[in-house]
Design a protein around this nucleic acid. Structure first.
Length: 527
RNA sequence: GGCCCGUUCGUCUAACGGUUAGGACGCAGGAUUUUCAUUCCUGUAACACGGGUUCGAUUCCCGUACGGGCUACCA
């Protein structure tokens, strides 16, 4: 971008602001939309797009809208819409308006707006900015086979079957016959199309490079291009925040706004950088989940086959807050060194200017770190609520007081929620795996009498609390000339089977006096 | 191929002409912890390349290389 362009951009904004002031009040409030297609599970990149839209709306006291773009009947997947809504609820990105959330600009599902698009498509034809085309997909495919870079545009349309090339009576006859017909955008040559992108600045396209995009398909449904312009206009969208893959077609979108005479209220655009694979080339795909052993979807998705089924952040044991925090920083930075943000804090700090321009690699290690941190800083009562269903599934006890104790003991040494009941299983059920190498290292048959005596001591401790137990054990070690290194590891092994874990005496308390004594005795038999 | 976008430690990124190029993850080392983890400290490591513009370029411009996206009656 040259200095001149930058200057022009600034000028443009000044003009735009001036215009905005002259517009009615309805243009003043921010309205953004998240517009996914229900073709399967919502990709994590889609969640990030939703997040940025949500944050932008919150930041500016605006409205966050969910619109379902289901104009491709062939790619429709049952359950996908429900999945999208559930994913938004789980992450806390709850729409103010949209499918399932009400609002005055509905319907918000594009398949329910079919008639609207047809009306506008025909209006565009009447205005001379679009035309009918009768070429079949097969014919076009043949053209592409025959010609390397075949494009439907002003150079080729004269030789194709459309209302611009065919005689009026033939066109009318085609129309009357009910033969398959599409409506295409008539791209006029010789125009510079400027897209003032909030993230990238001024992006220029030559209209002669653009093809005559299909606006209304033969099945009567609109393509994305038509539907998104009509809806954004009708729904009063002020800012379009979407993935970078849409940048090239934005030129067409600008042409559509012009064609409809809506350029004055055209939304501002912000194209987000893509999320890339952890390693190698290309953008993150659903297959990368299995490849790198990590989820790339917010929620698990159950497909028809195992290959079409995918794990989710939720099921892996991520807290939604950690997931959001992680995603927020993937392609955006707050302008400070702060790393930990609640949703509200993110909304406060958010600004489009701080969205990055280049693609961000999906860094699962960082995601792990966020989750670990969030678990550490989450209240035991809240954690208990997360642990309960996991414990239930394993048939473990689930009383509140106990689960809170488990949370307290384990929260500083787990990464994912299931770790509480997996790594810390010995808090719920008897030890099933002993670290035999460690036992060999620490056990000595000569220790047996002392160990038996110690069990008796522990049996006596009352009340059975950590300081009291510790005191008793300390005293015992002193009297028997034993070192902590001789005794403590054995106690730990007896209670947990492993050298990893919470402080021994804390564990003993959580297990309870009876269970502690029982485990010590069982250990004596085991070894 | 054409069009468009991008390029700072391994990764996420800060810097908006003058800095010992900052932070975080990861990794390494140390302290604390009679385990593990946490916590704390320290270290490691980057301006893709070549031309300009400028007193001075990571920063502005051009080019090259590399990466990415789009190129459907998919979104």
């Amino acid at each position: 971008m040259s200095v001149l362009y930058a200057k022009n951009t600034a000028n443009h904004y000044r003009v735009a602001r001036k215009k905005a002031r002259q517009q009615p009040a309805k243009r003043m409030s921010v309205r953004v939309r998240f517009a996914p297609s229900p073709t399967g599970a919502l990709h994590i990149g889609g969640v990030r797009t939703a997040l940025y839209n949500y944050l932008f709306a919150r930041k500016h006291g605006g409205t966050f809208i969910l619109r379902i773009e289901d104009t491709d009947q062939n790619r429709f997947v049952p359950g996908a819409e429900e999945y999208i809504i559930e994913a938004l609820k789980w992450t806390g990105l709850v729409p103010d308006e949209g499918v399932g959330f009400g609002g005055d600009f509905g319907p918000y599902r594009q398949s329910d707006r079919k008639a609207i698009y047809q009306k506008y498509a025909h209006e565009l034809v009447a205005r001379g900015h679009a035309y009918f085309a009768f070429d079949t997909p097969e014919e076009l495919e043949a053209k592409r086979q025959a010609e390397e870079n075949f494009t439907y545009n002003l150079h080729t349309r004269a030789g194709l079957k459309n209302s611009l090339a065919l005689p009026a009576d033939v066109v009318q006859q085609q129309l009357d016959s009910g033969a398959p017909v599409v409506i295409r955008l008539k791209v006029e040559p010789g125009q510079d199309i400027h897209v003032r992108d909030l993230v990238r600045g001024d992006v220029v396209f030559q209209s002669s490079e653009l093809d005559d995009k299909v606006l209304l398909k033969a099945d009567g449904m609109p393509t994305y291009h038509l539907a998104n312009i009509v809806d954004d206009h009708l729904m009063g969208i002020t800012h379009v925040i979407r993935g970078e893959e849409w940048l090239p077609s934005t030129a067409h979108h600008v042409l559509l706004y012009r064609g409809f005479g809506w350029e004055d209220t055209m939304p501002q655009f912000a194209h987000l950088p893509l999320i890339l694979k952890p390693e190698g080339n290309g953008k993150l795909s659903k297959r990368d989940g299995a490849k790198f052993g990590m989820p790339v979807f917010p929620l698990a998705w159950v497909g028809k086959t195992p290959e079409e089924s995918f794990p989710g952040f939720r099921e892996t044991g991520f807290l939604p807050e950690a997931t959001i925090n992680f995603l927020a920083l993937l392609g955006w930075h707050p302008g400070s060194d702060q790393e930990i943000f609640s949703l509200d804090e993110l909304a406060q700090a958010f600004s489009v200017e701080h969205i990055g321009k280049s693609g961000a690699r999906f860094d699962f290690e960082k995601a792990r770190w966020f989750n670990q941190r969030y678990i550490q800083h989450t209240a035991n009562t809240v954690l208990a609520g997360h642990i309960r269903p996991l414990a239930e599934a394993k048939g473990y006890r689930t009383d509140e007081a106990f689960l809170e104790q488990v949370a307290a003991l384990m929260k500083e040494r787990v990464t994912f929620l299931p770790d509480f009941v997996e790594q810390g299983y010995y808090l719920f059920e008897p030890v099933h795996t002993y670290d035999n190498d460690m036992i060999r290292k620490k056990w000595n048959p000569a220790l047996r009498p002392a160990f038996e005596a110690l069990i008796q001591e522990i049996r006596q401790v009352a009340p059975f609390e950590a300081p009291a137990i510790e005191e008793k054990v300390q005293q015992f070690m002193q009297e028997n000339a034993l070192k902590p290194g001789d005794v403590l590891p054995l106690l730990r092994l007896a209670l947990a089977g492993t050298m990893k874990g919470p402080a021994v005496f804390d564990m003993a308390v959580v297990l309870g006096q009876a269970e502690t004594v029982q485990r010590l005795q069982r250990f004596l038999e085991y070894k």
